[in-house]
Every structure is written in C-alpha cells, then in structure tokens.
C-alpha cells in the first residue's frame, strides 16, 4: 500500500489551536481596536474562502464576490432594524438572499467562461456599487431602504443578545466563520468537490464522467454567495452603523482577488492568510511603524507585487504541465 494522501485543506489539530486561541486567549490579551480588527479578519477570511473556492476548486474566475458580500450585509442590516428575529436567523436569511441572487446572476454568466466570466462578474460588482450608492446602507430609518432623514433617528444596528460587547461579538464571529468553513469543507470533501475538481481540470472529461456541468457550477456559485452573504451580515454587526459602500466597490473586488491569490486558493488556510493581509497587516504596519501613510501605500504595492509573482509562478507551473503547449 502506498502512502495515504488526504485532503490538506483542513487540519483538525491546527484548526483547534486557532479556534481555542481566538475564543479564549485573544479576547483577553487584545484591546478593543485589535479585537475589531480580528473580527473583520475572520469576516474577510470567509469572503476570501468563497472567492478562493470558486477560483481554486472550480476554476471559475469571479471578480464579483463582493456583490453577495454587500447583498448579505444590506439584507441583514435592514432586517435587523425592521424585525425582532434572532440574529443568527438574520444571518441565514442574508446568506440565502445572497445565494439566490448569486444563482440568478450566475445562470447567464455561466454561458461565458475564463476572461469573459471575470469581466461579467466585475461588472456585477460595479452594478452593485451603483445600486448601493443610491440605496445606501440602512441606519435605523423606515421604508424599503431604511435610511434615516433626521440625525435623532440614527441607531446602531443590534447585535445578538449574547454577544453585545466587542469581545463577545468577536467570539460569535469566529464560531460562525468556523461553521462556514466546515460547510465549505463538507462540500469540497463530497460529491460536489469531486465534480468541481473534474470540471476545473477539463470540462470534456467531466462531461464524459456524466457530470452536469452547469448544475455543479451553479451549486458552487450558490455556496460561495451564501458564504459571502453571511459574512456580509457579520460585517454589518461588527461595524453596526455608517457602513461605506467602498467596502463593496469595484476596487474592493480587485483587492479581494489580489489578496485571495496571494494567500493561496488551494487550501482554506489561504483564506485566513488573505484575511490577515487585508485586515490586520495593514493596521500593524500603520500603527506600529514610523510614517503610517507610507506603509499604507507600501502594503498596496506589496499586494500588487504579490499578485504579479503569483501569476508568474502559476503560469510557469502550467507551462511545466504543458497546458499552454
């Protein structure tokens, strides 16, 4: 018998260490600023995991993962003001709405592939940016958009009763993020994951195996949109008020794919790294190093450099495999 090689996407031991650290150690050693940062790192890791899964596991280059992220954020926020539903239910609804819209948009988008899919999904991000620019994020007002007309009505979005404080909400976010990662893992380790691996390598070969390609791509889009949608809801609960649309802009879309590629798309660890790059590293540099703004620009350049290196490396790897030959 040869050595048994299992999926390296998820090592239970390492996961346990990280989760225990996040749940029990981090809240007591970090101040409010870093806890908020770490919360957003957890949120962004989920978005990165969703985009990375589409690209790394299914081979779909989607630049529009900020769209379900934004949709989930908006829906969860709006419902938080309008209803008294428990917070986890709001997250679920936000995720489902994002998944449904993601699938509806995915259906025509799946008729194109490669570069064209990238363009279509980037335009999707642009469209959402426009819509959000008009609607704005809810902040306690009434009506469909829930935007206040007077400052006295301005109210922060509620958090779950058991996680009102920042450290408690951080723990809550880590747990939800972990559940989403597990959800992705269940899909990846099962029938969909095998079908996606086939589709990514060769669509003709996948067809020859009896795989209904469109159906499995839609499942991927729906799952990724669901994850990003729930993450959007978590983000809303973290910031609570005056969310800027720049979080969900075209630039954010490109930034997302850059950090996702830098983190690595083939394991779920890459997503954690992407979350670290985008939410923690920048603040580490700007808070503790002399010349804050320089480091901000430096980091952005670093992402560009990293993205380029990544693309060059993966092109080389492909040449070795003869895909370009």
């Amino acid at each position: 018998m040869g050595a048994i090689v299992k999926h390296k996407a998820f090592e239970p031991g390492a996961i346990a260490v990280i989760v225990v650290f996040a749940l029990f150690v981090a809240p007591s050693i970090f101040g409010a600023f870093w806890i908020t940062n770490l919360t957003q790192m957890a949120v962004f890791s989920v978005v990165a995991a969703s985009a990375g899964m589409l690209y790394g596991r299914v081979g779909l280059v989607s630049l529009g993962q900020v769209a379900p992220y934004g949709i989930g954020c908006w829906v969860t926020m709006r419902l938080a003001y309008a209803t008294s539903l428990p917070f986890p239910v709001l997250l679920l609804i936000g995720g489902i709405v994002a998944a449904v819209i993601g699938m509806l948009i995915g259906l025509p988008a799946l008729r194109v592939s490669g570069l064209y899919l990238a363009l279509v999904t980037l335009m999707l991000a642009a469209a959402l940016e426009t819509v959000l620019g008009v609607l704005k994020f809810p902040n306690g007002g009434s009506g469909f958009s829930g935007v206040v007309t007077s400052l006295s009505d301005l109210a922060p979005m509620r958090r779950p009763g058991f996680a009102e404080t920042d450290p408690a909400y951080f723990r809550f976010t880590v747990i939800v993020a972990l559940l989403l990662f597990l959800l992705a893992y269940v899909f990846l380790a099962g029938k969909p994951g095998r079908a996606w691996a086939s589709i990514r390598q060769s669509e003709p070969s996948a067809i020859a195996a009896g795989i209904a390609i469109t159906q499995y791509k839609l499942i991927a889009f729906a799952l990724a949109a669901f994850m990003a949608g729930v993450a959007g809801g978590l983000f809303a609960g973290s910031v609570q008020q005056s969310i800027g649309i720049d979080q969900f802009s075209r630039q954010a879309a490109l930034f997302l794919i850059a950090v996702v590629l830098m983190g690595g798309v083939h394991t779920l660890w890459g997503a954690l790294l992407a979350g670290f790059f985008s939410k923690v590293m920048l603040d580490l540099l700007t808070s503790y190093m002399v010349g804050g703004q320089f480091w901000n620009n430096f980091s952005l350049s670093l992402f560009g450099f990293g993205l380029m290196m990544n693309l060059i490396q993966s092109t080389k790897a492909m040449e070795k495999k003869g895909l370009l030959g």
Binding site: V5, R194, A197, S198, R200, Q201, S202, P204, S205, A208
Partner: peptide, 8 residues
C-alpha cells in the same frame, strides 16, 4: 490522459 490530478 485526463485523470483528475487533485483527487485520489
């Protein structure tokens, strides 16, 4: 040949 590289 088209054996799926990422699977066992």
């Amino acid at each position: 040949e088209q054996a799926i590289e990422g699977l066992s």
